[in-house]
Simulated assay, not measured.
Amino acid sequence: MLINHDFTRRVTVAKDDYHWVHSPQGGVDRVMLDRIGGEQARATSIVRYLPQTSFPQHVHPGGEEILVLDGQFSEGERDYPAGWYLRNPPGSSHQPHSVTGTLLFVKLGQMSGNERSPLRIDTRDAANWQKEDGIAICPLFESAQESVCLMRLTFGSLLIAPPLAGGAELLLMQGGLIEGNSVHAEGSWIRIPAGQRLVFMAEKHNTLLYLKKVYPGEMLEPEP
């Protein structure tokens, strides 16, 4: 399966354009934002668990990155409410479930084989945030392959970056972003190819977004 697989092209998916499809696991639906492969894939998705839904224990050969957007996500006996960021390294396994139901942003098969340790960050904790040039930033992960963070902008704040060596990806979690004559609403996912710039302005106060910058050489292959 190939969905938005040409990484030389810019892609924008608005919340109004979400196309929900059932996964093989009952009670779990997803919006496929990009995908290379079948059920074992290099993929980026919005994933929705209905209440009282669980997955059997399984392994992710290429790792899994999860941002909890709403509800409560659980792994085994540990619970992660909205705002938690998780990275499960290549070869790790887990048994995910949700008692209350949850909405997740999930990236599969996109981690370097050098990642060895799981990562858990509570982005609701003020101690995890810092101010840079008037913008609040919560660093999530940094490596030779990628830089991941959350950013919180006030109305009129500018998010500008020079041409990107490996491209970038945005998920607008709250608020709005103005880009030229366009306004991106909450829920929008934007993938920006290498060589293009970031030029956005916050359209609302308390605009919150996930930002990943990738560097040349990032793994794009699907999981085996």
Results as ranks from 00 to 15, higher is better:
41 A>W: 01
159 L>G: 11
149 C>S: 11
42 R>P: 04
27 G>V: 09
59 V>F: 03
93 S>G: 10
10 R>W: 02
7 F>I: 08
213 K>F: 05
53 T>A: 09
81 P>S: 02
216 P>Y: 08
102 T>E: 01
108 L>V: 13
118 P>R: 07
206 N>A: 15
71 G>R: 00
91 G>D: 01
199 V>M: 06
139 P>Y: 12
206 N>M: 02
159 L>S: 08
156 G>L: 13
71 G>M: 00
37 G>P: 05
88 N>K: 04
174 Q>Y: 06
112 S>C: 07
162 P>R: 04
186 E>P: 12
173 M>W: 09
65 E>L: 14
43 A>D: 12
222 P>H: 06
199 V>N: 14
172 L>R: 07
131 K>N: 13
128 N>W: 13
69 L>F: 00
10 R>G: 15
40 Q>R: 06
173 M>F: 10
25 Q>F: 15
168 A>P: 11
207 T>G: 09
151 M>I: 08
200 F>P: 00
51 P>T: 12
185 A>R: 08
76 G>P: 11
37 G>H: 08
133 D>T: 15
5 H>W: 13
116 R>N: 07
207 T>S: 06
49 Y>K: 00
143 S>E: 09
160 I>N: 06
194 A>H: 05
155 F>G: 10
136 A>M: 14
212 K>W: 07
27 G>L: 04
63 G>P: 00
49 Y>T: 10
134 G>M: 07
150 L>Q: 08
47 V>R: 04
101 G>L: 11
80 Y>A: 03
127 A>G: 13
216 P>K: 02
166 G>H: 05
209 L>V: 15
15 K>L: 12
162 P>H: 10
92 S>V: 04
159 L>I: 06
131 K>I: 10
106 V>R: 03
145 Q>W: 12
1 M>C: 03
49 Y>G: 09
181 N>C: 09
105 F>A: 08
183 V>W: 04
22 H>D: 15
9 R>P: 06
38 G>I: 06
110 Q>K: 05
153 L>M: 15
48 R>V: 00
11 V>Q: 14
195 G>W: 02
202 A>Q: 01
13 V>E: 11
161 A>Q: 12
15 K>H: 14
164 L>T: 01
88 N>M: 00
109 G>V: 04
6 D>Y: 10
7 F>D: 01
93 S>E: 13
155 F>N: 13
14 A>D: 11
218 E>S: 08
70 D>T: 00
63 G>R: 04
166 G>M: 03
132 E>D: 15
118 P>E: 11
194 A>Q: 09
170 L>W: 14
168 A>W: 02
156 G>Y: 12
102 T>Q: 03
55 F>A: 08
223 E>D: 12
147 S>G: 01
218 E>N: 11
57 Q>M: 11
209 L>Y: 07
116 R>V: 10
114 N>Y: 11
110 Q>C: 10
43 A>E: 08
93 S>W: 06
222 P>A: 05
81 P>T: 00
40 Q>L: 11
37 G>F: 03
1 M>Q: 04
50 L>V: 14
79 D>Y: 15
201 M>D: 14
